[in-house]
Amino acid sequence: MSTVDRLSVLKTYKLFVGGKFPRSESRRVYEVTDAKGAWLANAPLSSRKDVRDAVVGARKAFGPWSGATAYNRGQILYRVAEMLEGRREQFAAEVAAADGVSAKKAAARVDAAIDRWVWYAGWSDKVAQVAGAANPVAGPYFNLSTPEPTGVVAVLAPTDSAFLGLVSVIAPAIVTGNTVVVVASERAPLPALSLGEVLATSDLPGGVVNILSGRAAELGPPLAAHQDVNAIDLAGAPGELAVELERAAADNLKRVLRPQPGDTAKGDHWLADPGTERMLSLLETKTVWHPMGV
């Protein structure tokens, strides 16, 4: 008896939409290869109807998620980090294949991603102190500015950092109460689709994160033009596409995060300290005037 006797059990990668794992509405798939061109798996090739369903899911989840206490959101995100920790080996293997790096380097990136998730989780009940204020005004009023989540955020995930880059764009959006529709890296979607399985088992309400795999050029335009999407993060959009999407996004005055020069860089760009910028740019400031009483 040799080891060949055991049949290989191949994984069917599926989308993560509204807390469920559907196939693409279009029934299409495409071949995903590692950095050297060897076949890894078939991933769903999403269509604009998957975009539509994902936005519906995200919108439905927005009320409860943004209404949950900051403390509760933080706890849930810690829980996600705990689940990620338990599947480090799987993610390290997927990142090694996706990013084309050594096992050691891949493990370092996964660790960095988990640490980043924890770091953002900590921000949930602190961001209001940084972004909010008690404003001095010329009258007997309390004048308080508080940050509120923008709403449904469409994210084109970075193309060349399949896991660390992905975590670095999802976590800052959801920690403040936004819900997201993520278009995973077209070339390397598998870590993103596996992340969906982690999110589904870690108390995160269904629909807070929706993950689609497919072509950014196909899924970007309907997302950018969608009237029910409030912001779009173009981290993974190549130059020309980013311009086109920004133009489409202007129709309903979406907030747009333009791609930064390093966003699509290969290598360890995403290892750098992220800062609070990405988190703060997906917040709206609400200011209330309240009479002081006596």
Partner: peptide, 14 residues
């Protein structure tokens, strides 16, 4: 109906 006439997905805000 809005989607058909504009080509853009509409939302409950509209």
């Amino acid at each position: 109906r809005q989607k058909l006439s504009t080509g853009r997905y509409s939302g409950p805000d509209y």
